[in-house]
Design a protein around this nucleic acid. Structure first.
Lengths: 141, 141
DNA sequence: CTAAACTTGACCATTTTAGTCAGGTATGTA
DNA sequence: TACATACCTGACTAAAATGGTCAAGTTTAG
C-alpha cells in the first residue's frame, strides 16, 4: 500500500491551483512558495498530472498551469492515480510458491485486503477538489 | 502511511493459529510451513504479538503459541498496532516551517487525511479474527 | 531576442522493508 | 539428567522506495 507525501503534495498543489487559477495561469514557482514544496519536485508531479489530463499549461512569460476541468469533476482518485499512488494493498501474484496466486488458492487474507482497497477507494472517489475548497475557503493563506 | 507485508503476515499467521490451536499450542515452524513465511521473521512478529498480549506461549517440546483471547475479541486494529503498522496518514508536526504544525495553521489537506485515517481505522476496528475465520472455513489448506 | 516559464531525464542520499544469521535461554519428555 | 524442541534477542543487510536535487534543455510572450 502506498500513500506518501507525493500524493499529499499533489493534492495540496491542486487545491492551491484551484484557488488561484481563476484569472491567470498559476506558475509552479508561486505554488512552491505558498505550499513550501520544492520547485523541482513539483515539476515532476505536474508532469504526471498533465499526462493524465488533470491540468493544462501555458508556456512563456506569465505562463503557468490551470485545471483542465471544474474542481467538482476532479476526484481524489484521479489525482492519486495520476501520481502513481495506486492504493494497492496486496500483490499476491508474485508468490505463486505458496498459496496465493489470485485464483483458486487465495491466501487466507486475500479477500480482506480486497475489501479494504475498495473501502479506501470509495472514500477517494467521493471526494472532489471542490469538497476540499469548501472546507478551506475561510482560511487565510 | 504504512500497510505492508509485515502486517499482512501477522494477520495470516493469526488466522492460521486460530484454526489450529484448538487442542494443542501451535509451533511457529508449522505456521511457517503452512503459510510460507520465514521462521525467523515469524519470531520477530510473534515477539511483538506476545508483548501486546495477543498470543501466549508454552515452551519445551510440544510447545508453541495460542491466542490469549477469543477470535471475536481480537480486532485487526489490535494486530496491526502490535506490529507497528500505525496507519498514520500524516505527520505534519515536523515541517513547522511552512503551514502545518497541527494547530492554527493546518496545511490545506490536513483535515482530509484525518478523515481518511478515521475511515480506515473504522474498518479495522470492525473486523475481528472471527470474521476472517468465517470467510475461510470452507477452504482446504 | 531574451527572460520567464515549462520539460525531460539522470542522478542520489536516506530511510524503510523484509528479511537473515548467530547466538542464546527455557522446558517437557524420555 | 540429557537433549531435542521450542521460544527469545539483537545485530546485520540487500533491495526497494522515498523524497528529493541537478543539469540541460525547449517554448513563447513581450
Amino acid at each position: 500500500m502506498k500513500l506518501t507525501s507525493k500524493g499529499r503534495y499533489a493534492v495540496m498543489a491542486l487545491v492551491d491551483l484551484a484557488r488561484f487559477d481563476t484569472i491567470n495561469p498559476v506558475s509552479l514557482r508561486d505554488i512552491s512558495l505558498r505550499q513550501g514544496i520544492s520547485l523541482d519536485y513539483l515539476e515532476q508531479i505536474f508532469s504526471k498530472l498533465k499526462k493524465n489530463h488533470i491540468v493544462k499549461s501555458t508556456r512563456g512569460t506569465q505562463g503557468g498551469y490551470f485545471l483542465s476541468k471544474k474542481p467538482n469533476e476532479i476526484k481524489l482518485t484521479n489525482i492519486l492515480n495520476a501520481v502513481d499512488e495506486k492504493v494497492k494493498t496486496v500483490q499476491c501474484k508474485k508468490d505463486s510458491k505458496k498459496g496465493c496466486n489470485g485464483k483458486a488458492t487465495k491466501c487466507i487474507t486475500h479477500n480482506l485486503w480486497d475489501e479494504l482497497e475498495t473501502h479506501i477507494n470509495t472514500f477517494f472517489e467521493k471526494k472532489s477538489l471542490q469538497d476540499l475548497l469548501k472546507n478551506n475557503s475561510e482560511w487565510v493563506n
